[in-house]
Amino acid sequence: MSRSHVNKSHADDILRIALMSAAVLAVGVLLLILLFLVRESWPALQRIGLYRFVSDAGWHPLEGAFNLAPMLIATFAAALGAILIAGPIGIASAVFGRFYAPPVIAETFRRMVALLAGIPSVVFGLWGLTVLVPIIAKWQPPGASLLAGMLILAFMVLPTVALTADAALKAVPKQYLHGANALGISQAGLIFNVAIPAARSGLIGGILLATARALGETMAVLMVAGNVVQVPNSLFDPVRVLTANIALEMAYATTEHRSALFVSGLALMLLVVGLAAMAGKLGGRLHG
C-alpha cells in the first residue's frame, strides 16, 4: 500500500499553482513563437509552396519571385567561413590559456575573451563597416563582401568557441594529464592525443553552438556583407544572408512578401534550434 502525501498547507498549494502558471507562461513563449511564425508563414507556404522557394527565377518579391536559395547559400557560406576561421583559433586560444600561458596571463586572457563575448553584435558591425570594409575595399572593391561577413562573424563567435573549449579542457580529469606527463609524452602529444580527445564532445558542442550563432546573427553581417542578393562567385562578392534579408525588407513587406520573410524566419529558427539542441547534448552549453 503506497500513500500519496498531501500537504495540507494552503499557502503552499497556492504557491505551487502560482509557480506552475509562471512555468506555463515561460514554456508558452516558445509555443507562441512557433505558433505565430507558422501562422504568418502559412499564406506563403500555401500559395507559393516550398519548392518555389528554391526554384523561382530569383528574389523579386514584388514581382512574385521568391527564390531564397542565393541567401541560403550566402548564409551557409558566411557561417562556414566564420567557423573555419574561429574554430581553430578559438580552440588554440583555449589551449593557450590552459597549457601554454603563465597563470597570470592565462587569467587576463580569459577575462579578455569573456569581455569580447559580451560586446554587442551591432558594435562588431560598426567596427567592420568602418574599419574592415575599407581595408578590403582598397584591395578588392567594393569591400562589403562575403569575406567581410565571414571575418566579422568569425571575430564574433570566436569567444563562444574559446570559452566552451576552455570549459571542456578544464573538465579533462587531471590524472589523465599527469599520467601522460609521467610517461614523458611531448607537449604536442599531450594536447593532441590526450587533452583534445578527452574534451572532444565539449569542443564539438562549442563549435556547433558557434555555428548556430553565426547562422542566426543578423546585425554584424547585415552591416558588412553588402546585401546584394546573389550566389557569390568569389569571397569578394557582396552577399545577403537570410537574417539580413528579413531585417532589410520587413519594414515595407506586405502580403505574400511578408509571409515569405516569415517562412525564412521559421526555417532559420528550426535550423538554429536544431544545432543548439545538438550542441546542448554534447555539453557545449555556455552558462550566462
Partner: peptide
C-alpha cells in the same frame, strides 16, 4: 502517514 495528516 495518513493522507489527511497536517504535516506542518
Amino acid at each position: 502517514h495518513a493522507a489527511d495528516m497536517d504535516v506542518q
